[in-house]
Design a protein around this nucleic acid. Structure first.
Lengths: 111, 111
DNA sequence: CGAATCGTTAAGCATGTACTTAACTAACGC
DNA sequence: GCGTTAGTTAAGTACATGCTTAACGATTCG
């Protein structure tokens, strides 16, 4: 379902922080290690780890550890779910506008 | 711009709460008063007011007071901005920026 | 006028978030 | 085996969130 509320909670919450969006933007260009994600960010590594945990918990990012390096990759399905919720609301809004247009036409033709 | 970070912060933050998403869902069917928004929610009116403030601060909702009733309406442009950021990341991941440009145009003209 | 309706403000509280530093483990590479 | 690299855990702090109740202001209506 598109409307799994608890999932949307954590996904939007994860998106609501510039550091996490920066990490996602980096990952949208391809997989990266934790320190690669951390490098451009003005904060300590443990802080980045916490952000990463938030991203994993939301399902937006999947990680895998091999040797001593953890590789992170985007999970587009979760991203699509969040996008889908917004799109649905806008579609409803626009649907309403369409009906309004029809209504206006009816008024005109009737008289 | 689509990438105004501070604006996205508050927009996604506003979306990260089921009560606020419920209010938006209601508003996507048309304008409503504060108490209409509050009726289905299991919380006090002041709590709803706070959520409403968050929605206004994010630009997702616009309100107007006439007499003693405040009327709230959806602001689709802010919704489109949030949707657009996600769409951009997914487009990058899919390696198809060309189609993304078209999509942005669609969001703008629809908003 | 006086009562009911709609909204608003203020204060307080419990919990969650976003960091920090310090200390520690696990794997490479020579 | 020893130092370096990569990540992790723990503990603490400062501030933000999400609610509550109580009290108040402003319209509208009988």
């Amino acid at each position: 379902m598109l409307n799994d509320s608890a999932k949307l909670d954590t996904a939007f919450q994860a998106l609501a922080d510039p550091a996490r969006r920066g990490m996602l933007a980096r990952l949208s260009r391809g997989p990266a290690s934790v320190s690669e994600l951390a490098r451009p960010l003005p904060m300590s590594l443990p802080a980045v780890l916490q952000h990463l945990k938030a991203l994993e918990a939301s399902g937006l990012v999947r990680t895998e550890k091999k040797g001593r390096v953890r590789t992170c990759r985007l999970e587009p399905k979760a991203l699509a779910a969040a996008e889908g919720w917004i799109a649905e609301q806008r579609a409803l809004w626009e649907g309403r506008l369409d009906r309004f247009e029809d209504y206006v036409q009816t008024l005109k033709t009737e008289g």
